[in-house]
Amino acid sequence: MMAPFYKFDLFSEEFSFIIAFIIGIGFGFFLERAGFGSAKKLTSQFYFTDMAVFKVMFTAIVTAMIGVYYLSLIGFLDYNLIYRNDTFLVPQIVGGLILGFGFIIGGYCPGTSLVAASTGKLDAIFFLLGVIAGTFGLSLIFSAIEPFYYSTAMGKLNLSDVLHIPYGIVIFFVVLMALGGFIAAEWVEKRLASKNVEVKDEKN
């Protein structure tokens, strides 16, 4: 076991900030490559015309998931040392819904709005200001919602604990689900594209 490097004291906290910046560059680069600097491209997901959000997200999840799994198996990476969020089921579901509303209204999520802002989208800058304003608004009433915020605490829990299925089998199912999703996404895109062509033809 030698990874995660940071938790084995291979470098200092200060150096980790340099790493943060470099990793951030990679993150931002691929987000932009995927077209996530465009609100139109992002929101097309929700009109079934361009399923790139789903495709990119699930490819990334599957890639990292398989990587973490096999690196843990060969004893290189200690899975237990990777930080995992505790589960607070109900606040996370409610938060997810609100975030979904914000996504379709605002057109971005926090990470993608950064990429959009750096490529010159004025609406993304307004979105960023909105995120800070919303967080500030929440902080004012935070003491009132604190009981809800900490409700349904379930600790660190993964899908294999919940479903009582071995971790490896969950991985297989996630891969199958993602591949099935990709096939469906390609099919939907193709169908809508041919429909659009027909509409255009009629106009002409």
Binding site: S72, P166, Y167, G168, I171, V174, V175
Partner: peptide, 26 residues
């Protein structure tokens, strides 16, 4: 090709342990 790679690596995961249950230390 990518889909096949994903499918194969996902499939072999079935036969291995759960990494986070490992009690081994080196």
């Amino acid at each position: 090709k990518l889909a096949i790679i994903a499918l194969i690596s996902g499939f072999f995961a079935i036969f291995f342990n759960t990494p986070y249950e490992s009690n081994k230390a080196i």
